[in-house]
Simulated assay, not measured.
Amino acid sequence: MSVLLTASAGSSLPMLLSLVILFVFMYFFMIRPQQKEMKKKNAMLADLAVGDTVLTTSGFYGVVIDIDEDTVIVEFGSNKNCRIPMQKAAISAVEKPDAE
């Protein structure tokens, strides 16, 4: 009976090792890059200022008019009449105006 227990305990070591390797692989190729991307986006949104040109997640370009805690008012188009409040999370890219 002790021979069977020893054999089964020895065969679980490779399985445990493969699970550890799988977890390490998932961390470095899936979880860590996603965390880096999230930090980069949070830094971009924290650096947002009035007058920046933004690209929304829906594909519209606009200029930031006002910033609140979690919302921004973005002006779209050249007629200056289309001002839409939206969440900061809806901004996918920010372009700073050129300082001349």
Rank of each mutant, 00 (worst) to 15 (best):
Lys41Glu: 13
Val64Arg: 00
Lys80Cys: 05
Ser2Tyr: 09
Asp70Ser: 15
Asn81Pro: 03
Met15Ala: 09
Val20Phe: 07
Gly62Leu: 01
Thr57Pro: 02
Ala99Tyr: 03
Gly51Phe: 01
Ile21Trp: 05
Met30Trp: 02
Gln87Thr: 13
Met15Val: 10
Met15Gln: 07
Phe60Arg: 02
Arg32Pro: 01
Ile84Asn: 01
Val50Thr: 13
Ala49Leu: 14
Leu55Tyr: 03
Lys80Met: 10
Thr53Ser: 12
Asp47Ala: 15
Phe29His: 03
Glu95Ser: 13
Lys40Ile: 07
Leu22Ser: 06
Asn42Asp: 15
Asp52Glu: 10
Ser78Tyr: 06
Phe28Ile: 05
Thr6Arg: 12
Glu37Arg: 11
Lys88Gly: 14
Leu55Asp: 07
Val20Gly: 08
Lys41Gly: 07
Phe25Ser: 07
Ile65Val: 14
Phe76Cys: 00
Arg83Lys: 15
Pro33His: 05
Glu100Tyr: 05
Ile21Leu: 10
Glu95Phe: 07
Cys82Asp: 13
Ser92Leu: 08
Arg32Thr: 02
Phe76Ile: 01
Ser78Arg: 09
Val54Pro: 00
Leu48Lys: 00
Met86Trp: 01
Ile91Asp: 00
Gly10Ser: 08
Pro33Lys: 04
Val72Ile: 14
Ser18Gln: 10
Gly77Tyr: 04
Phe23Gly: 03
Ser12Tyr: 09
Leu17Gly: 04
Asp66Cys: 08
Pro85Trp: 10
Gly10Phe: 06
Lys40Val: 06
Lys36Tyr: 05
Phe76Gln: 00
Thr6Gly: 06
Val54His: 00
Val94Ile: 10
Ile91Met: 01
Ala46Lys: 12
Phe28Glu: 04
Ala99Glu: 11
Phe76Met: 01
Leu22Ala: 11
Asn42Cys: 07
Val64Gly: 00
Thr56Ala: 01
Pro14Glu: 05
Asp68Gln: 15
Glu95Pro: 01
Thr71Pro: 07
Leu5Trp: 10
Gly59Ser: 03
Tyr61Thr: 10
Leu5Asn: 14
Ala9Gly: 08
Asp47Gly: 11
Gly62Cys: 11
Ile91Glu: 00
Pro85Thr: 02
Met15Asp: 03
Asp52Arg: 00
Ala89Val: 14
Met1Leu: 10
Leu55Ile: 10
Val72Ser: 01
Asp70Gln: 15
Leu19Lys: 08
Met44Pro: 01
Val3Phe: 11
Asp66Phe: 12
Glu37His: 05
Lys40Asn: 11
Phe60Gln: 02
Ala99Ile: 09
Gln34His: 04
Cys82Arg: 12
Glu69Pro: 04
Phe76Trp: 02
Val74Arg: 00
Glu37Met: 07
Ile67Val: 14
Ala43Met: 12
Ser11Asp: 05
Gln87Ile: 08
Ala93Trp: 04
Leu22Arg: 05
Gln34Cys: 03
Ser2Pro: 06
Gly77His: 04
Asp68Glu: 15
Leu13Arg: 12
Asp98Glu: 12
Asp52Ser: 02
Val63Cys: 07
Lys39Val: 08
Ile91Leu: 09
Lys40Glu: 15
Val24Trp: 06
Phe60Met: 08
Ser8Pro: 02
Leu4Glu: 15
Val63Arg: 08
Ala7Ser: 13
Ser18Leu: 09
Phe60Asn: 04
Met30Tyr: 04
Lys39Ser: 09
Ala7Thr: 11
Lys40Asp: 11
Leu45Phe: 08
Asp68Met: 13
Leu13Trp: 13
Ala7Tyr: 06
Ser8Leu: 07
Ile65Tyr: 09
